[in-house]
Design a protein around this nucleic acid. Structure first.
Lengths: 213, 213, 213, 213
DNA sequence: GATGAATGAGTTTTCATTCAT
DNA sequence: AATGAATGAAAACTCATTCAT
């Protein structure tokens, strides 16, 4: 009845529980990433995770619950990747800060290729709650970009333009870029960073030669 | 078996057949547009079309076949909206031609809001063949944009940039714009044309004030 | 396109539908009667009815829905068996009327032996709605008996007693009798009518020799 | 392996074991009484008893085994409540003895309200063995009543009647009364004893005013 | 002895497609 | 051609019981 031992057992049990959860999430991620959300059945997750039916329901409420949890994780990571641009004296140049943000998003997407694939491709119509979360996330992202644009205008970095539409366009280029990344084979180590900077450059300068507007 | 009579009967029958087909397509369009592909059941289409189960399978091979046909139609229309930019002497200004293309795409999307919604949102994971078609379409669209950019560079309209990435970005802004349009309520007649031009402007000039890079 | 033919087809279809429903109800009745409610699975009903899984759900919402419908039928029949006692001039003797009621209940139970068995035995705890219906029925029956007793006291047929308790006791004897009937083998044609009259006699006169109270 | 010490340890262990068993039985009783047999899951018992899943199976063979044990207890107590009527010289009056029996049954039921509820309501269809036990108990009870009636007839207390049917009716009134008691809220301290006597009175004298048959 | 994670057989339910009328 | 009843494969989910720690 030594207390420390009991503690030890409890801790080990908890750790095991957590690792089992993680294993199921991994399996689910692989399944979703491979077959897509709708073509993935609980059975697929089971066989990938090597567990019994009941075990799955011990850890999650069902297919959509696992997906939701994976999604939350990705959205959280993406949310963290995006930080406001500092404009105070002594701050790094704005373009450099933007490039850093792009680099961080990029890393997150690269680390979560499979999941991002599902999210980007089957964006809507999966499940009421999943839809809501995604919607909310894109809403927040859009709002963030909007704010950044307005701040950019204040400091004279961003020209006069329709902030609403511009934010939408930027989001579009980001999503398309994500979709592109996701489509790449694992071994296709193209120069992703270079592409990211090219996306940034596109957003900043547009297509045209610099004839004044 | 009097030939002339049969001709008349045959024609009428064919006409009826066609209008029945069209009615089913309409019903399917509404169903898919409202509930999305996966949440739409054949029953939904049946009740909207006011036909019996068996009748449906007399005209189409199944749920995914109807969807595929609707998709083909949309892609064809979209394809038609996109025409190359003429650069010969006496051609209208490039920007005006681009604006026209944007306007045509816009009209197509507006006329096919429901279907566009499904295509844009549930882009992938519906059905192997549907996936392939969509992929092919976006591939062609991307190729078209790429060509246009190269031609633009040749005539000095487009600056030096990564054509691959720029094409991707443009596609992204278009898709995001489509998604935005699709989200609007039917009666929300916001100034869509103005927005379209703003998207074009964004793509052409980017965000920044024109300090040379 | 002869209208009468269409009518004929429609009628025949409706009839078939009804008879299919009836067949399922029959199968369900047999299954419930044989194995009891909880031991009966939809599969049992399917194989007894010789239909496919989906067909069952075409006609009923599920196991408890079929049972509820069977129950409703029985309760309705039982309700019809029970009619008030007439006390006007020229009415048949009260005892004779009561004997008739008993006989009618008896016939109903005999005709619905299997179902009565389930109802009497697994009275409660099957399903929320089933419970409610049964409860309501017994409540009405109790109320009916109470009224009859009060009327009986008014005309001097029933002695002074606790009406509440007496009604409860009578219900108890009826239920126990039903349970007994239900337990009998099909071929055991004991003199059921005689027993019914004995139950009536018990309720009317009690156990004791007629020493005045 | 010092014998005296082991004895002490053994006794203490046995006591603990017994109290653990009792705690599980208590929890099971509450669970069954509240939700009924089928709606009660082993988990319900576990959480009420505050023990782990495995522990439960250390003490009992399973859900139906616990229920069976609870049932045995109730049936034993009920069996003890019922003692034969003495008719020798100097015995208390028959009616008083019957009233005592009624009182004892009543006390038992009151003390075991929850369990009686399950037994009375879900009488049959729980489990083969449970069914058999209940059946046997009611058989014995019926036999006891039958004997009592015959003895009653011998001493001229009970009139000429169909003993079989009368026993059945009496059992019916008892069961209905039990069901009624069980339905009462715990705090509804209606005059149960008065009701019990009214049941007895009903059984003895029946409904009618005493016009000779 | 105690624990609670794991099991998997057993059930229910759905829905695209077929086919006899 | 049209109908709609029937099909049954495919999923999802539950819960009593086992067993390694």
């Amino acid at each position: 009845m030594a207390e420390p031992d009991v503690d030890g057992r409890t801790r080990r049990a908890t750790e095991q529980r957590e690792s089992r959860r993680a294993a199921i999430l991994d399996a689910a991620l692989e399944a979703f990433g491979t077959r897509g959300y709708h073509q993935t059945h609980v059975s697929d997750i089971l066989s990938l995770a090597g567990i019994a039916r009941g075990t799955f329901y011990l850890y999650f409420d069902g297919k959509s619950a696992v997906f939701l949890e994976l999604l939350e994780g990705l959205l959280a990571e993406l949310g963290d990747s995006i930080v406001g641009v500092e404009t105070g004296p002594g701050s790094p140049p704005v373009e450099a800060q933007l490039a850093d943000t792009v680099r961080r998003i990029l890393a997150t997407v690269s680390n979560n290729r499979l999941l991002t694939a599902v999210v980007v491709r089957e964006a809507v119509g999966l499940d009421a709650e999943v839809d809501a979360r995604l919607s909310a996330f894109y809403g927040r992202l859009l709002a963030y970009i909007r704010e950044a644009l307005i701040e950019g205008q204040r400091i004279g970095f961003v020209r006069a333009l329709d902030v609403e539409v511009a934010a939408m366009c930027i989001l579009g280029t980001i999503k398309q870029f994500m979709e592109h990344l996701v489509r790449l084979d694992d071994d296709a180590t193209v120069d992703v960073r270079r592409m990211a900077l090219a996306v940034l450059d596109f957003n900043l300068r547009g297509l045209t030669t610099h004839q004044p507007a």
